[in-house]
Design a protein around this nucleic acid. Structure first.
Lengths: 165, 165
DNA sequence: ATTACTGCAAAAGATTTGCACTAGG
DNA sequence: CCTAGTGCAAATCTTTTGCAGTAAT
């Protein structure tokens, strides 16, 4: 998991200026355990930095993705892009109902990145490995897809959460 | 690669009605070698089926994704979702400049899907394995990222294409 | 006959852009 | 200083929705 200073250093090393806004965004990314969207980072930070604009959040996230410091996972059934502060190779499992993403450790992903490096002739900078569920086909849209697969009483993979939409 | 009838059968089996529009969309998906967006399918088909609406294309693609007949890869640096008619496990390499996606064979991806099945307790229905390039950092936005990595005269991975944006 | 499907127009939302102001190096 | 960065408002664009007409089974 990236630390706040790893993220800010990455920006600085890439030639970006270090502003309080960027530092705050990096700190928020490093602190969060989930896979935030631009909106959710903005909502979280504007409590302390009420002048922080959504535009700046978008720009900073984009810069971080472009330098390979974080990854863009695409949407999780909602319409917003989720970002991944954890650039250690792993699998993401997305629930199309509750729009949350869970990390899954995987040795095979490391092998994948080796294959990509070899095929492209350069180090892997960024990518997304996301598997998503078929919950949209289920009768009850409020039902979490991963929990619904567990016929017996086994715990829900994600816990109980409300779908956003 | 899915055939037209595999796609239409999948829809029928899932309880969807077979309409000329859906059949056409399935045919277009099966025929294409690239990773189309809803817009590009619509543009292609409206030449023959001028009444075909973009709404129907979106709906049909969504249905196909939900039944696991095709996959949604997310964006490739543009803002539209690309779809994947080829559900054989493989890696996708996306160029953030020209917005095209290339397939890369990989045995490791099969292993990935086994891991996901095991972790979720069910068969993998859909997912995206996409690596994208760092072309956005390059000086010339018209330069294709994959070609730019080839210092000698080796052929461009994608051929020469214009960025969309 | 039923009920899902289609297409249109409008809406919804996320992300981007233009621009004047501000501040990092 | 000088140029990059910020924030606001407006614009853009993709995707979704409401609804009345149409067609699949």
């Amino acid at each position: 998991m990236a630390t706040r200073s790893e993220l800010t250093s990455a920006l600085k090393d890439a030639g970006f200026r270090l502003t309080p806004q960027r530092t705050a965004i990096c700190a928020a990314l490093a602190a969060r355990e989930d896979h935030p969207t631009a909106q959710s980072i903005h909502e979280e930070l504007k409590q302390q930095y009420e002048s922080l604009s959504l535009t700046t959040v978008y720009q900073t996230l984009d810069s971080l993705v472009r330098i390979g410091a974080i990854r863009s996972l695409g949407t999780a059934g909602d319409d917003s892009v989720h970002y991944e502060p954890n650039i250690e190779p792993h699998i993401n499992l997305a629930c199309l109902t509750c729009h949350r993403i869970r990390d899954l450790e995987s040795e095979a992903v490391r092998e994948l990145e080796r294959e990509v490096s070899e095929a492209t002739g350069s180090k892997v900078l960024s990518g997304r490995v996301v598997y998503y569920s078929d919950c949209l086909l289920r009768a009850d849209p409020n039902e979490c897809p991963f929990s619904s697969k567990v016929a017996d009483g086994t715990a829900n993979t994600f816990g109980n959460v409300e779908p956003k939409r």
